[in-house]
Simulated scan of single mutants.
Amino acid sequence: MSEDFSSAPPALVEMIRRELLDSYDEELEQELEDKRLETIDGVPGAHGELDRRFYFRELLRLQHELVRLQDWVQHEKLRVVVIFEGRDSAGKGGVIKRITQRLNPRVCRVAALPAPNERERTQWYFQRYVSHLPAAGEIVLFDRSWYNRAGVERVMGFCTEADVEEFFRSVPEFERMLVRSGIILLKYWFSITDEEQALRFNMRIMDPLKQWKLSPMDVESRRRWEDYTRAKEDMLARTHIPEAPWWVVEAVDKKRARLNCISHLLGQIPYGEVEHPPVHLPERVRHADYLRAPIPDEMHVPDRY
């Protein structure tokens, strides 16, 4: 239950209002960043955009529902795994940012594993992913997952075709085992067109703040577009199972993709309201013999703004 501020001093109410507005600025900054990418060097957006007010209103509404879902997951001790897959620059990171933006990082965390090291390459393929699975009351978002084997590893020749075939034999049973154990498993594929990926890559090349996102592997993936397409089609056909189906997000329009994905995710996990006891701040304890020690001037960060 929220604190009642009807009797609070106007100055306190104004401070709280400013803090709330500041918390929303993070989303505004991300929106301005997207806008800058779409217009940099005179390159216009590739499609009609959602009304900005509608987008923000819906995003905040969905984020409020995500907080309610988070409370339910904690209360019911659920274990949730959400997999985000797709081509480079398909928008996986953008939707993950919006999902986690207002959630507790101790409840909802992101697993984005680097390339396996020498030791991990000798382990059972799924072993390094298992350690990131959720405990009771946790949500884990996989920014890429064990499906690396069916995508980049296969296309780039980092594994053999025998490895790929073993993966396709194993992954349905692995996921059925996860579901039988009580884990809620959701799998999203973010789909963009050849033209849209080319546009996004070119915008990153032109933007000095985004160039770090383009690795040599990403650049090579442009040349192998059709190889990735064949690998994706094979993956979806062979791992789309009733216990853990794939859901395809049309992601050419980033804002619609974010809203559609979050809305769909919320619809896959039945959740209710969790009652919280009212929160009241206690009076601060004051000690007459306490004097605050001064902080030396050289320890202060300069006020440049």
Score class of each variant (00 low, 15 high):
Glu14Ile: 05
Asn117Thr: 11
Leu103Ser: 03
Phe167Lys: 00
Val179Ala: 10
Arg154Leu: 09
Pro294Val: 06
Arg119Trp: 05
Glu138Tyr: 11
Asp41Glu: 15
Glu243Trp: 05
Arg180Val: 06
Gln74Trp: 07
Asp71His: 13
Arg144Lys: 13
Thr239Ile: 05
Arg87Thr: 06
Lys232Ser: 01
Met203Tyr: 03
Val107Leu: 07
Asp297Pro: 02
Leu265Thr: 03
Glu175Lys: 01
Pro114Trp: 10
Ser170Cys: 05
Ala257Pro: 03
Glu283Ser: 09
Glu26Asn: 04
Ala136Glu: 15
Ala115Gly: 13
Leu62Cys: 02
Arg87Cys: 07
Arg180His: 14
Phe126Cys: 00
Val301Thr: 13
Trp247Phe: 13
Leu66Ile: 05
Arg223Glu: 14
Arg53His: 12
Ser215Pro: 09
Phe174Lys: 01
Leu265Gly: 00
Thr122Cys: 09
Glu166Ala: 10
Ala293Val: 11
Gly93Asp: 09
Asp303Pro: 11
Phe56Leu: 13
Ala257Arg: 02
Glu173Met: 03
Ala288Arg: 14
Tyr271Asn: 07
Leu21His: 02
Leu21Ile: 02
Arg106Met: 02
Asp25Ser: 12
Gln70Lys: 03
His300Ala: 12
Ser170Lys: 00
Ser170Tyr: 00
Pro10Tyr: 11
Leu59Tyr: 04
Lys232Met: 07
Phe142Met: 08
Arg304Leu: 15
Ala293His: 05
Asp289Ala: 15
Asn104Thr: 04
Val95Phe: 00
Glu138Ile: 09
Glu58Met: 13
Ile139Lys: 03
Arg224Gln: 14
Val252Phe: 10
Asp41Met: 09
Trp72Tyr: 15
Arg256Trp: 07
Val179His: 04
Asn148Thr: 08
Gln30Ile: 07
Tyr55Asp: 01
Pro302Glu: 12
Glu173Ala: 11
Ile241Glu: 02
Arg52Thr: 15
Leu259Tyr: 02
Ala257Gly: 09
Asp289Phe: 14
Thr239Ser: 13
Asp4Thr: 13
Gln101Asn: 06
Glu65Thr: 02
Val279His: 13
Gly272Cys: 11
Ser145Cys: 10
Asn148Asp: 12
Gly91Gln: 01
Leu32Ala: 12
Asp41Leu: 12
Arg256Asp: 08
